[in-house]
Each structure stands twice: as C-alpha cells, then as structure tokens.
Design a protein around this nucleic acid. Structure first.
Length: 486
RNA sequence: GGCCCCAUAGACUAAUGGUUAGGUCACCAGCCUUUCACGCUGGCAGUAGCGGUUCGAAUCCGCUUGGGGUCACCA
C-alpha cells in the first residue's frame, strides 16, 4: 500500500511553528517513503474563518520549503481539498451512519445543554446524557422526522457504544486504550449543516486514502472517537502517530504569549528557513547522532517516525539563534548580499556596489546573528560616523593622540597600496618607533573612523573603506577635536 | 476534578539490560587577539522518588510524585 499522509490545518490565522513541525514530519515521512503529502484545509468552523489564512498558510509552507503533492491550488485525484467544498460528501456519509444506527438526531438548544451540564458537578466528566435530553432516542424516530421536516434546528450525534474498550496502536506511544464510558456522544453534524472535525477528518482521511495520520498530541484524547467512526463505517483505519507538543519555557503548550510563534514572524525577524526547519526537526526527533546541522535532504533520508520522542520539547529560542548563526556563517556571500540589499534600502542606504557590500558582509558576518543587524552594527561602512563613543572618549582618550596621529595620517596619504597588511606594517613600524604598542593607536583610529570602540579587524575595515574615506574621516575627527567640539 | 499522555543536567537530546551515562545550546574559566565577536581548550550540571524483576536497570514492572494534554454545535 502506498504511503499517503496529510497536513490538515484550520485556516484561523497564520502557520504556527508547532504546525510547521507537524507539516514537516508529515513531509519527511512521505518523502522518506516515496509517498504522497497532501494539504487539506479544515474550515468547517464558519465562525473562525480568517481572510487570506489559506494563502498565508501556503506561503509559509512554501517559504519553509515544504511542498505538498496534492492540495488547494495544486489539485490531485482526491479533491476538493477544502472541506467547505465537500459538504455534500459529509451529509451523505452522515446519513449512512444514521442508517447504520451509529448516530442519532438531537434537538437540544445550547441553553438546555448548558443546563444539563450544570446538573452534573464539575468534578467528573460531564457528557451528553442521551437518555434524558431531547433526541431521536427519547422522542422516537417518527417524532424526530417530523421535527426535522418542521424546520427546527438539529444536530447529529455519534451513538457511542456503552462500556466497551476502544484501543489503537500509536506508532509513537504504543497501545492506547479508553473505555467508551469516557467518550461523549460527540456532535457529528452541526445545526448549520457543517460537519464537525471528527466526522470530516475521518471521512476525508478514508476517501483520500490517507495511510498514516501524523498529528499533534492534543488529538490523542479524541482519537477513540475517530476509531469508533471508522468501525461504524466498517472502514480500515489508518496508522496513527501523535507527536509530542512544542512547549513554552514554562512547559505549557507553545503560545504566542511567550514570544512569536508564527512562521512568518520568524521569517521577518530574519531567520533562515533552513535553520528553522533544521531546528524544529530536531525538537522531538533525533537520528541518534551527535550532529546538529542537517539539510532537508539529510532529514528526509534519516527520518524515522519510530524515533520520535514521547515527551514535549521546549522551544528554546537561544538555541534557535545559535543554529541560525551556523547557517549565517556558511551561507554563500552572494546569497547574503541578496538579503542585505533590501534591508539597506529600507534604511535609505543605496548606491553601493555588490562587490563592496559583499566585502562588508565577509568582514562582519561573524559578529551578527541576523543580516538585519548590519545597518546598526556597521553603519560606518555606509556613511561617516556622526557620533563617537562617549565612554571611550571619557575613559581611554589621551590628549597627545592627535599629535601622534598627524604624521601617521601623512603616511596613510602617501600609501599607494592601501591594503590591510601594508597598513598593519606601516602603522606598527611608526608606532613602535615612538616606543608605543600597536594597540595604543589602533583603538583611537577605530574611534575616529568608525565612532565605535569595537568592531572587526581595523586594517581590514580600513582597506574596504579605502584611503580617501579613511583619511577624510581622520582629518575630520582631528578638526572636531581641536575645535573642542568633542 | 475524570480520562489520556509523558518523565536523562536550566534547555534539546544520545545510550533499545553490561558505557567513567555521550553530544549540542545556555552558563563559567582559560587561550587566541587589535577591541567586540568568531574560534579553540577546559569546566559546572542529569537518569524525579520508592519498591520489585535480574548476576547486572536510565533502560523491564508496580506505586508515588511531578508536568502536560483533553473534556464544545473549535479545530
């Protein structure tokens, strides 16, 4: 049998990193087994629809490099892939279930249900009481039919068998057993004619020939209901794998209250898609190796769902940053240039040659975590500093530095080959000739040229800026200093 | 609260009955150096507890404790 898996998000907002990982594991599983990855949109809750959510979802998946084989906009033999376009199908199968006696109509208002729940103390499970409420079982089929024909609103509920054991084998957790006395007579068809998740996902997984249902652990408690549905229909069940949750630092389910969780936020914060995918892949799964960095192909190759952990995993942003830095370090400079250009443009920094910007990137890439930090950390590579580190001036500045520097400035002016090794030699010779150490002059020079007290190698920085720019900046600084403006 | 799931350092994990319990992030120290980083070296730190099974348990079983999920006409 061929492997077919699906990612079935609800379009209620943006793609959550937890959803990304679920999608990724489905994708990895499909690709590893040369199977098919299906995207299905579960939009049966009309009250929670968010505009453009489907587009955003697909955009985020695409950004992450997770492409689906069948789904909205892509087609496939099992469409449509948007549940709101499959309403007749659910109706049809709901009727089959009703004919089989596995489901019944119910006519209670939400107030009546609320009332019923109040009667039971909250200390234990409060399920729908099919024997006292207003439904087909209590009023009879004929009466029920009349009510429906009269146009009152109704739902269809699953008739859960009494006191029997439902069990299934989870690929990650092993055998899971629940007594049906713990299972509610779940609504299958809502009064608005839409199916609930439970009905829709079972019908669709069957019709779409899904072989493995890989989803988050939050679905574990409702899986027995789904098993009951498969059994009522007489269908083969797919394999189930319930993934451990992604957690906040306080171990609760990962939520946006404790930092961004939308994939597109990570994208706009400057994370690389490869590093997010790499990071999230290793949250709850590990190919039993000491390695941390994997390409998507390596992940596909190594992925084994049996090796997925059972316990939840804290989403550690510090480690994510570290991982992103690993990608930043090894990424081809031309790619970084493509990323840097728009960042600079938004800051109004334009007119620099690619060649120049690539040198700047090479110079500073190991001092940043994100490309977007570049204007902040290296503004002096794009314009002369407007301010000079006050702390440094107060604590380390020596009054005779300007005088010492003037002859050195002349030396720089006369330098034909303004490259870092030359600059190093010239500066070193000059300053040691005065009986001083190189570092005693490097820092003042850094201050004059960059305005800062820390940065990349000074002579490399000067080489890239070029002779004219450097000498002009030093002159300007001397002027300001001598006129007492700083 | 009922039910379900889970449990190796602060975090992510490796070790599928026999290892000095390994790696990574974070943290700390040292080295490198031209400052800040990077890098390198080293360090801190773990099998939740108690019983069993076994020659031998992180690993198998039970209990306890702790954590999480879930209990909708939401997915």
């Amino acid at each position: 049998m061929s492997i077919r898996v699906r990612f079935a998000p609800s379009p209620t907002g943006f793609l959550h990193v937890g959803g990304l990982r679920t999608a990724l594991y489905n994708y990895l599983y499909a690709k590893h087994h040369k199977g098919t990855f299906v995207l299905r949109i579960e939009d049966t809750d009309r009250t929670r629809l968010v505009e453009n959510a489907v587009e955003n979802l697909i955009k985020s998946l695409h950004w992450a490099g997770i492409d689906f084989d069948e789904g909205p906009g892509k087609g496939g033999d099992f469409g449509p892939y948007i549940q709101s376009e499959r309403l007749q199908v659910y109706m049809e199968f709901a009727n089959i279930l009703h004919e089989k006696g596995a489901a019944y109509y119910a006519f209670d208002t939400s107030e009546e249900i609320e009332e019923m729940r109040k009667r039971n103390p909250l200390e234990s499970f409060t399920k729908y009481d099919r024997h006292t409420m207003k439904n087909e079982l209590t009023i009879g089929s004929d009466e029920a039919k009349k009510l429906i024909e009269s146009g009152v609103s109704y739902v269809m509920r699953l008739k859960v068998p009494e006191n029997s054991i439902v069990s299934f084998e989870d690929m990650i957790r092993g055998k899971v057993e629940v007594n049906t006395s713990e299972i509610d007579d779940q609504v299958l068809m809502k009064s608005d004619g839409y199916p609930t998740y439970h009905l829709a996902n079972v019908v669709d997984d069957h019709l779409m020939q899904i072989s493995h249902v890989i989803r988050g652990e939050e679905w574990l408690p409702s899986t027995p209901k789904h098993i009951l549905l498969y059994e009522a229909f007489g269908w083969d069940k797919p394999m189930f794998a319930h993934l451990p949750l992604l957690l906040n630092p306080d171990k609760t389910k990962l939520s946006k209250r404790q930092g961004s969780v939308a994939v597109e936020d990570f994208a706009s914060e400057g994370y690389f898609s490869d590093s997010i995918v790499n990071f999230v892949a290793l949250l709850g799964w590990n190919p039993s190796s000491d390695r941390e960095i994997y390409s998507i192909d390596e992940l596909i190759n190594a992925f084994e769902i049996e090796k997925v952990n059972k316990g939840g995993a804290v989403f550690d942003r510090a480690k994510l940053e570290w991982m992103n830095f690993q990608y930043l370090k090894q990424m081809p400079v031309t790619e970084l240039y493509q990323l840097l250009k728009p960042v600079l443009e938004t800051q109004g920094i334009t007119g620099f040659q690619q060649d120049y910007l690539e040198k700047v990137i090479e110079l500073l890439r190991e001092r940043i975590k994100f490309i977007k930090e570049m204007p902040e950390i290296a503004g002096y590579m794009f314009s002369a500093p407007g301010e000079f580190d006050k702390d440094y001036l107060e604590k380390h500045w020596k009054e005779n530095t300007v005088e010492i520097l003037k002859p050195l400035l002349d030396i720089y002016r006369d330098t034909i080959d303004f490259n870092h090794s030359n600059l190093y030699e010239l500066t070193k010779n000059y300053i040691e000739g005065l009986g001083m150490k190189l570092k005693e002059i490097i820092h003042p020079i850094r201050l004059m040229i960059t305005g800062k007290s820390a940065g990349a190698g000074m002579f490399e920085t000067m080489e890239i800026l070029g002779k004219d720019e450097c000498t002009v900046r030093i002159e300007k600084f001397i002027q300001l200093k001598e006129s007492g403006k700083i």
